[in-house]
Simulated assay, not measured.
Amino acid sequence: MNPSIGRRVVDVHAHFAPLTSSSSTGPDPWISRDGSATAVWYHGSHVDSLVREVVDPTILIAGEEAIGIQEAVLSPWVALLPQTEDPNLAEAACQRLNAAMAETVAREPRLSAMAAVPMIEPARAIRVLTEARAGGLTGVEIVPTVAGEFVGGERFEEFWASVAETRTPVFIHPSSKGMGIDALQGGYLWNSVGNPVETAIVGAQLVLSGLVERYPDLRIILAHAGGVLPSVFGRIDHSFSVRPEPKSRLSHEPSWSFRRLFYDTIAHGERELAALLAAVGPSQLLFGTDHPFDMGDYDQLTGLESLGLDPVALEAILGGTAARLFGLAAVQA
């Protein structure tokens, strides 16, 4: 039996690109169409990792429904997040993107969306996020690093204090660059290894910096089931027991904070997902697919049933927790 039957299923890891341009002479993404198929180009190259619809919301939600998903919380395709260090350019790019995302979801009650913010200046990020939320967006997507600095650093404290106060969900997605490590550039390692390592670093930094302890209302969601972070929970706890450095900013062992983060379900393996469930509990998991990329997991609904979850826990993972965090209204059938 498909476990989505009779239950609310919300995809919290679904990317969208509100692109309309059919040609480009610069590095910005653009699209071309061949009948009903959409192709995306970036820096002059075809993005062949896109295996599902990314620019047409009607086709996107139809594709989600075809695999048992009723709703999606869209996040911008990471390539669209501003990479410039110029605060003015970054702010303008985020505002354009947020306006397009808000316009898209306003037409489709089964879709909601997260904002982009210029993290290069945390005060600007707060202002842009406030505008975006007033315009109907329900959360924010950020990448782990800004100009080479991980976002758990002290410079970003103002941002974290603000999103904790407003209880805004923050979805942290790897930057998909392989962290600039040459050894990750072959064999698709920048994605299969680099992305989960990047997520693990930022998750560990947020916890070891004491941010999660200081701001108990933070709603941080780590992509790809936390990357490789869950595999080192025990090792990080051990460092707390034997070294003074982790104790300098923490009152509890790190796993106490790891159990307060949220994680999507894209673990690419029932064993890995079961281990994450055992470590943090079903209340911290949110269903996600990584739509529309080739590294997405589109067959999880049946696999989740094999984990032996009780109905309440399963319903929370599939959509209940997402509805609570993002403030999603019930969608009428």
Rank of each mutant, 00 (worst) to 15 (best):
L211H: 15
L211D: 08
V212G: 12
R214N: 09
R214Y: 03
R214L: 05
Y215Q: 14
P216V: 00
R219K: 15
I221R: 08
I221N: 11
I221W: 11
L222H: 07
L222A: 01
L222V: 00
A223T: 00
A225E: 01
G226R: 09
G227F: 01
G227T: 00
G227R: 02
V228K: 09
V228I: 14
L229S: 04
L229C: 09
P230E: 00
S231R: 03
V232A: 12
F233W: 04
I236A: 10
I236L: 15
S239D: 05
S241L: 09
S241R: 13
V242T: 14
V242G: 06
R243G: 08
E245M: 12
P246S: 05
K247F: 03
R249G: 08
L250Q: 07
L250S: 05
H252I: 00
E253L: 03
P254D: 02
F258H: 04
R259E: 12
R259L: 00
R260S: 07
R260I: 01
F262A: 04
F262I: 04
D264R: 13
I266E: 09
A267Q: 02
A267Y: 00
E270R: 14
L273F: 05
A274H: 11
A274V: 03
L277D: 10
L277V: 06
L277K: 08
V280C: 08
G281Q: 05
Q284M: 14
G288F: 11
G288N: 08
T289C: 14
D290Q: 08
D290A: 10
F293W: 01
M295E: 06
M295Q: 13
D297K: 10
D299G: 12
Q300N: 05
Q300W: 09
Q300I: 06
T302G: 15
E305S: 14
L307S: 11
